[in-house]
Every structure is written in structure tokens, then in C-alpha cells.
Amino acid sequence: MTERATETPEPGMVLRTPRGRLFRFDPGALCLELLLTSDPGGLPWTYETLREPADLVRWAAESRLPDGLPLVVGDEELERARVLRGALWRMTRARARGEELAPADTQVVNEAAAAPPLVAAVTPSGERVWAPAATGSALLSTVARDAVELFTGPNAHRVRECEAVECALHFVDTSRPGRRRWCAMGRCGNRHKVRAHRARTALPGDGAGRAEGEA
């Protein structure tokens, strides 16, 4: 579902819709990037990309983490990644809707965050590298700690869900006015603009035009 964004320095990950259309989406946080590996909401474009440990390694390389992570992941850590992902999805949806976070979900995040995280190091030439022996547990700890920062920090009230009814994507609204509505203008934003335009230009009594504008 995800493809590495290497052609441009723009932030975000390149996603592919069920019809094969590519679009760039930046959820604004590492922990929300993990949600892009599946659709726990059960909407029509449901998918699962974490099928084996190598998939979690691949996701880490595609994420906003710096390159060059020598990661080793086991089957148990992969299952824990799925559990953490589910907890994060429910917490994200609750925060976006102004609801309380479920204790069972925050416990999952807290337990993952309690493990040692990924460690960065500096070389004699001044380059930033990852310390060796990085594990899946360390990766999940780093993701969970990012979630703690998000849900308790200044952007906690800016966690949003895309307003398109057929979309399950969530993001941190970092825009200055705080009025971001869509996951990406190249996807749901443009579709909304097209529908709104058709609704405005529909002839009086054109029921089909009105229906599409209301979709």
C-alpha cells in the first residue's frame, strides 16, 4: 500500500488507492504513519500490509525515521506491532472526536513505550547513524513514545479525521489557522471541490447534480 517517497523532499508517504491512483499523505506524526499499514476502520478499501516481520522492517524504512536503520524483527514483535496499531487507531479516532481515551489502549501504548527505544549515534565524521542491534521492540517503543508526545502535547487537540465520509485517514492539523479538513488536497480535497462545483453549476431541477454535490 505504501511506496517510498524518494523523488521529492516533500514530507509524507505515497499511498495507492484501490484503483491504483497514487497520492501523497503526511499524517504529521510517526505513530500515525503506522496506521497506514492497515484500515482498522473496516471501510471498503480495507487492507493489511504487516503480514510478516519483513513488512514491519519495510514500513520503518518508508516512515519518517531517518534512513539506515539496521532493524531485526521477530514474529512476536510483529504481532505486538499489530496490537499497538489497533490501540493507536482507536486513540486517534477518540482524540479526533473529542472523546476520552480507553484505558486498555493507553496501557498498550504505555507498555510499549516502557521498553528501550531506538538509539541514534554520531560517527567521528559527524554523521548521524543508528546504533547497532536495533530490534522490533525498540522500534515499537519509539512509535509509542511518539504517541505519548502527540496525545499529551500541544497538538493533541489538533488530531483530525478526514471529513470525507469514505475516508479513514487521520492526521495532525499543523496549519496555522487549524482548519485543515482533508487527508490530502490531491485526493479528498479535490473530490470535494469537484462535487461542490457540479452542485453549483447543476441546472435547476437536476436531481443527479444535487445528489452528487451532497455526497
Rank of each mutant, 00 (worst) to 15 (best):
Y47C: 13
L78M: 14
A168K: 15
V119G: 08
A138H: 04
A96I: 05
S38G: 15
T6L: 10
G86M: 01
W59S: 09
A156E: 03
T49S: 12
D39L: 03
V143K: 08
P66D: 02
P154R: 03
T46N: 04
P40E: 00
L34V: 15
P53R: 11
A144H: 06
R16N: 14
A133Q: 15
P44D: 02
A29M: 14
V119I: 12
L101D: 04
R179P: 15
R176W: 04
R181A: 13
P40G: 02
G98D: 08
A147S: 11
A156N: 07
R19I: 15
S175A: 11
A29T: 09
R198P: 04
R145E: 02
L101K: 07
L169C: 01
Y47H: 13
T46F: 01
T49R: 10
A133R: 15
A156S: 07
T46Y: 03
L22E: 15
E163T: 10
P66E: 00
M1V: 13
E149W: 01
V165M: 03
N110R: 15
R210K: 00
W130Y: 04
G126L: 04
G74R: 13
N155Y: 10
L43N: 14
G74T: 08
L101N: 09
Y47S: 14
A5G: 10
V119Q: 12
R158A: 05
C162W: 09
V109K: 13
T8I: 04
H170T: 14
D39S: 05
F23D: 00
A211L: 08
V109W: 13
V72Q: 06
S63W: 00
R19P: 05
P44L: 00
Q107C: 13
V72G: 05
T6R: 09
L101Q: 04
V129L: 11
A121P: 07
G186Q: 11
T92P: 00
L43I: 06
W89T: 10
M13P: 07
A113W: 06
T123C: 14
G68D: 00
E3V: 14
A5D: 12
P132D: 04
V194W: 05
T201L: 03
G186T: 08
N155P: 07
V159K: 02
V165D: 07
N155V: 11
E163K: 14
V194R: 05
E7F: 01
G12M: 09
